[in-house]
Nucleic acid binder design. Structure first.
Length: 463
RNA sequence: GGCGCGAUAGCAAAGCGGUUAUGCACUGGAUUGCAAAUCCAUGUAGGUCGGUUCGACUCCGGCUCGCGCCUCCA
């Protein structure tokens, strides 16, 4: 049985969906004003693994991952670059989708955009007004009144007093309480705006998730996820909005993934220490990045460096070597019987234990070992289990020839040239001219091509 | 200042109150015309000080160090 760490209770607990056959999952996605960086990639891959594992576990999963396509940063960035908001967000959404496809992150069931749900947001704010949980400030902004929502702080484990004691709580003359947050912002000239009972304006950030989750999943659903930094205030505020409006529980399980770090510090836009996925993909194959991310537990911090990515690449190559050895691993005929095998059971136990992907990956290495020792079906099991994590999806021979996880120049022409040299070397070997044969081996090795003589033929791969 | 998380071998990273995690790198042997891959065999751990226990890397407490949230942030 699947067990998940629930931020709300701060412990790992058995997962039981509201409806036994299906799971409703919502994850806070991207604010599209820039390219995705590796930290975003980590979050998206982690929840992709959850999505996949829930499905593998037999649940019918409705997965909603929103896109925030209106907010201050988007407005600022568009102005700064002299392009329209739609042009900027359109460009960034396309880039994100390309990045995610390369990372083999599956498309969610629904991917709503904030701008498509403004009427719903206005309706929810009106409900909050009616219930006395929201008020309109003299500046025309509408605020949520946190002191009127009992239980504010339950997700982040903070009390209103704790929060007020913080040095960094911003003062705002229009708010009744410094912790009150904006539900609706009145429009400034030239900014995008929608009509509302409080005048033209645009929604605050938190309200969109309360509305879009309810639209697709109802007002009470199973799992809500996001990065650790969203725990407070974003998710806390979502709870205040949704539970305040509906008067009943909003989400059963809250999940938050740990940060990706650079030199021990959180990778973030504000620190400027981020690496975009597309930059990394210029050097490493996306599969290496995915594998690197899954070698760590989703809740632990994970340090990024080229050395770590290179370690991951070597490890992934070990798995691909086994897969190549087993001739690709014929997955047909595996099916449900995988769960009666030792490896299958260990793999399931690992993922059922709060998505312990490092341990699941260790099972894959065990199978790779079995392949080389001639254990029947080990290759097929390896390919099958790895596919459940979105790993080892490439053809192994191609994988090795196209760069073995590195991005190398050269296409079909380059391959023909290498194979020509290999043919020359084979001729030299046949003539027992080992000096010439070794010369070709050395020349190819110098350009990163490794030759592997085996059973009379020569296989090659990139180092 | 408030709240919380972490400290595992050369590097990365898990589980576990007593039995090999795993990967990368390294060492010896086998194999190979030479290699690569692989196999076999080895080595390197658990911040620090106490406590609980027959026994602790694993539980409890102090200390030190690192990180996060409290402001936009995945």
């Amino acid at each position: 049985m699947l067990r998940l760490f629930n931020t709300l209770t701060r412990r790992v607990e058995p997962f039981q969906p509201i409806d036994p056959a299906s799971v409703r999952l919502y994850v806070c996605g991207m604010t599209v004003y820039d390219f995705c960086h590796l930290g975003h990639g980590r979050m998206l891959v982690n929840f992709d693994v959850l999505f996949r594992w829930l499905q593998t576990s037999g649940f019918q999963v409705t997965y909603v991952r929103n896109i925030t396509d209106i907010d201050d940063k988007i407005i600022d960035r568009a102005a700064q670059q002299g392009e329209s908001i739609q042009a900027l967000t359109g460009r960034m959404i396309a880039a994100m989708q390309e990045d995610l496809e390369r990372l083999e992150v599956l498309a969610p069931t629904h991917e709503p955009r904030a701008t498509e749900h403004v009427p719903g947001m206005i309706a929810l704010i009106e409900t909050l007004m009616t219930k006395g949980l929201a008020y309109c400030g003299s500046n025309g902004d509408v605020y949520y009144s946190v002191r009127d929502f009992p239980g504010y702080g339950k997700l982040s484990g903070k009390t209103l007093e704790d929060l007020r004691a913080g040095e960094r709580v911003a003062r705002d003359e229009y708010k009744r309480d410094p912790l009150d947050f904006v539900l609706w912002k009145s429009a400034k000239p030239g900014e995008p705006q929608w009509p509302s009972p409080w005048g033209p304006g645009r929604p605050g950030w938190h309200i969109e998730c309360s509305v879009m989750s309810e639209c697709f999943l109802g007002s009470h659903f199973d799992i809500h996820g996001g990065g650790h930094d969203l725990q407070f205030p974003h998710h806390e505020n979502e709870i205040a909005q949704s539970e305040g409006a509906h008067g009943h529980a909003f989400v059963n399980v809250w999940m938050h993934n740990g940060f990706l770090r650079v030199d021990g510090e959180k990778m973030s836009k504000s620190l400027g220490n981020f690496f975009t996925l597309r930059d990394i993909f210029q050097r490493f194959h996306p599969a290496v990045v995915r594998f690197f991310l899954l070698r760590g537990h989703y809740r632990s911090p994970l340090n990024y460096s080229d050395t770590h990515l290179e370690d991951a690449r070597q490890g992934l190559n070990t798995l691909y070597t086994a897969l190549r050895e087993s001739e690709g691993g014929d997955v047909s005929g595996i099916g449900q019987k995988i769960w009666t095998t030792e490896a299958g059971q260990a793999f399931k136990a690992a993922l059922d234990d709060d998505l312990n992907t490092p341990e699941a990956v260790a099972v894959l290495f065990g199978l790779a070992h079995d392949v080389h020792r001639g254990v029947a079906e080990a290759g097929a099991q390896l390919a099958y289990l790895a596919s459940l994590l979105g790993l080892l999806t490439q053809n192994p021979v191609q994988w090795f020839q196209e760069g073995a996880g590195l991005v190398v120049a050269g296409g079909a022409d380059e391959r023909a040239r290498i194979e020509g040299l290999i043919a020359q070397r084979q001729a030299a070997r046949a003539a027992r001219d080992f000096a010439s044969a070794d010369q070709i081996r050395q020349a190819l090795l110098a350009e990163g091509v490794v030759l592997e003589d085996k059973a009379g033929t020569t296989q090659w791969r990139r180092a």
